[in-house]
Design a protein around this nucleic acid. Structure first.
Lengths: 214, 214
DNA sequence: CAAATGTGTTACTAGCGGTAACACGAGTCT
DNA sequence: AGACTCGTGTTACCGCTAGTAACACATTTG
């Protein structure tokens, strides 16, 4: 029952845990989302059962690994969202922050986007704590909170903020994913185009000749 | 070399193929994206190798199954996009069509969106359909085409249209996914909120008290 | 000293995607 | 008729995966 014993051993366990996470990080960076538990264990210089003792199952390792990156990315996004600047500038900075992150480490973010997708049927029965689609949902909720806190949207503000939060995050994600694959333009151009979309240029645009009347 | 023989046998093969696809459809509707080849074969009353003879590998079966639903959904979306009405009405009709579809058969569309399922390493070698979501890409390209055809967006119209196509589709998808999970409001409310976002209400909204200056 | 605890191993299960080898039936060619 | 092809179906297998049991070693704690 000594606290000294517990803290000392726990400290060692935490250090190992961090080392294992870093090894997993390396493997995911190299092999992408298909990284196997065997490969991660080998990279860490150990064998599988240790991974399972530390993280329970693959979902646990995924969750721990995801938390690191989502927390880091969300911190960057919060900084961009909270910068003292015009709204348009803040929106563009936020978009650019996200796109720069996925551009720098595409494999990691592809890994983060795909939820658990377990092999066995254990996932389907009861998912008390792990059903969440982690990164996208968290970003959506976070953005929704910022929108609701800072914008005056009238009586439906709460619902509007949440819908917009998830919608904008989805827009950012899908456009970023497509852009990463095709690279049809520079990052700055993409940012400007998306901000234009959010700024109502879709509604303001004129019809082409032979337009919607037909 | 008779044409009659060939067409006869091919007709039979096509019929079997359709039957197998319908069995696969049933299993996916029941078991979700984790449906295994064994389960599909059992549902069809046969064994695995026949599936592989017809569809090559799991990706082929996925692609064939996906094509059916994507084509059907895209047809509905095109109809909504081409309706003779105001732009705002068309946008809302398109959003509502998509949301009604995913509401009616959530499992199918979850299957279509999350195909990647890291099986063996064989999948990694030749990636016919490895891209995260053919449905999202196709919808994005399709919408981009409609936007470019019908809107006058100035000199950068082509790039803008493609970015917006993928962005709007991503917005629709992410918001729909979140909405399906939480059901925080009615479908009509969601449609209106998203259309409001696209109509520039984000840019037009006023600041809250103690706003961005802090 | 002995008990407990974290670290590590080998060896295994069950299921997956995918494939070879073989067997049967129905039309076709000579 | 007999041989030949071709599509349909099987069983039995491969290599891989996630996950687990059983056992061994070191270290700290009572």
């Amino acid at each position: 029952m000594d606290t000294t014993q517990r803290t000392e051993q726990q400290r060692s366990a935490d250090r190992r845990r961090r080392e294992l996470l870093e090894a997993a990080d390396r493997v995911v960076l190299r092999d992408g989302p298909q990284a196997s538990m065997n490969a991660i264990a080998a990279e860490a210089g150990i064998t599988k059962p240790i991974l399972y003792r530390h993280f329970g199952d693959k979902g646990g390792l995924y969750a721990a690994l995801a938390k690191r990156h989502t927390d880091a990315l969300l911190d960057s996004l919060r900084a961009a969202l909270d910068a003292p600047a015009e709204r348009r500038e803040r929106v563009e900075a936020t978009l650019d922050t996200y796109l720069a992150a996925i551009e720098a480490r595409p494999q990691v973010y592809r890994f983060l986007m795909h939820p658990a997708e377990g092999g066995t049927a254990a996932e389907q029965g009861f998912d008390v704590g792990k059903h969440s689609a982690p990164l996208l949902r968290r970003m959506g909720e976070e953005l929704a909170q910022v929108i609701e806190d800072r914008l005056d949207l009238g009586p439906e503000s709460q619902r509007l903020a949440r819908v917009w939060g998830h919608g904008i995050v989805g827009m950012m994600h899908a456009a970023g994913d497509w852009w990463l694959g095709e690279r049809p333009c520079s990052r700055a151009e993409l940012v400007r185009s998306l901000a234009d979309l959010l700024w109502g240029r879709l509604a303001a645009a004129g019809d082409r000749i032979g337009g919607p009347g037909f």
